[in-house]
Design a protein around this nucleic acid. Structure first.
Length: 113
DNA sequence: AGAGTGACTCATA
DNA sequence: CTATGAGCCACTC
């Protein structure tokens, strides 16, 4: 198991923990960088979660991770309008100002250890 | 090995 | 309400 490359399921790897949680976010819900960090026992590592997202393997629902104000990622990340389009297709509620209505769709990951 | 990085968050103005 | 500054810390190279 021990190798020099990246491991998908190494619990000592914070990024790996982030990816495992992101996989569980249900369609129609979103979570925040801070909530993921908190669930992994690193309440001040929200910025690190952002780093994990920017290097995430394909196939993860990274568009369901937003900041604590319900604001989406910069347009260059998914392409202009792409993230919002995906979330709207999944039924995520938006406010008039374009932010996500987190009161109605925030998914809080179960705390890990 | 260690300085640099950043899809964040919080405090402050 | 918006804007800006500082702290944060796992990962990258």
């Amino acid at each position: 198991m021990g190798h020099n490359g990246r491991m998908e399921h190494d619990k000592r790897d914070f990024y790996g923990g982030v990816y495992a949680l992101v996989k569980r976010i249900p369609a129609g819900y979103v979570t925040t960088y801070g909530q993921l960090a908190l669930a992994l026992g690193r309440p001040r590592a929200s910025r690190i979660v952002g780093g994990a997202m920017s290097r995430a393997p394909q196939g993860l629902p990274c568009h369901r991770v937003v900041n604590r104000l319900g604001e989406l990622s910069p347009p260059e990340v998914f392409g202009p309008g792409v993230q919002k389009g995906l979330l709207m297709l999944e039924g995520v509620p938006f406010l008039k100002d374009g932010r996500i209505d987190l009161k109605r769709c925030l998914w809080i990951p179960k705390k890990e250890i």
